[in-house]
Design a protein around this nucleic acid. Structure first.
Lengths: 151, 151
DNA sequence: CTTGATGCAAAATATTTGCATGCTC
DNA sequence: GAGCATGCAAATATTTTGCATCAAG
């Protein structure tokens, strides 16, 4: 896993490059994503940020603006499934994909070399310059299947 | 590609099974998805349905309700990327994945046996009963790269 | 007939925007 | 200081819901 300091430096570098400003709010959002493993909606992230620093006033609009920025720059990734809206997690982790349980909503991350390689091959075949990729396997996890049997 | 009649029968079968009713509106939404290749937002689908049958009054609420139903039953698939909200396409096609160009928004569908097989292997490894899966490769298509060079 | 489905409009959510003011640089 | 970023609230956009009415089975 990437260190927080690295992510922070990366954010600063990107902001400088684009002549944007490094602000407490942007730092707080990045930190909230880093410190909370999982996938959160913009609103949840807003809450996390406020909890992390009750003093700092951070508006929901800024959270939206910052999440868009982080996603564009690859510092955050988003995923969306079923009824749920978009959810974010910290980016620049080792690349991984997701297994999502439709019963309990659990999200399991995994990484598979074979799939990664094959994705590159497909991109090449279509003459695509791949900047990112994402895979979801939707299904029912072991625990939920067991519960169902008991009923 | 699956025949429309097959999809229609499939819809009727599912509705009967769940003791739901087969209505003109549900038929129109399914048909709109079938006849229009591509990925559409609920609003666009609403428009397509109205164009297809200006006489039939179909509310946007019904479109949403129907899309949820079709998606749950596998007759429609949804995909979402970047700023865009959810977009739907007809389901029960041969399974395929997507290449999405971040410049022009073009969506290319592809199918890769190696990836399909590997997904099954992963699901098995985590003891997941896979009901569906989806993969997106995000990048820049050939055409857009060429345009950029010209600038 | 019975029960689910629909349209409509209102409500609930989610997301974006304008603008005066505050902070980075 | 100059100019971007922010908070706030208003404006939009998106999705869901309640309910009287309609229509499928």
């Amino acid at each position: 896993m990437v260190e927080y300091d690295f992510l922070l430096e990366e954010l600063k570098r990107i902001l400088k490059e684009k002549q944007l400003k490094f602000t407490r709010q942007r730092e707080l959002v990045l930190k909230a994503l880093y410190e909370n493993p999982g996938h959160f909606s913009p609103e949840e992230i807003h809450r996390l940020v406020q909890q992390a620093d009750p003093g700092a006033k951070v508006g929901i609009a800024t959270v939206y603006r910052t999440l868009s920025l982080l996603e564009e720059e690859g510092l955050a990734d988003s995923i969306s499934f079923g009824k749920e809206g978009k959810r974010y997690e910290i980016g620049l982790k080792k690349h991984h994909d997701h297994l999502i349980c439709i019963r309990c909503g659990k999200i399991i991350e995994f990484c598979d070399e074979t799939i990664e390689k094959q994705q590159e091959a497909v991109a090449k075949k279509f003459d695509f310059e791949m900047t990112d990729h994402a895979m979801k396997i939707i299904g029912i996890c072991k625990e939920c299947r067991e519960h169902e049997t008991k009923k």
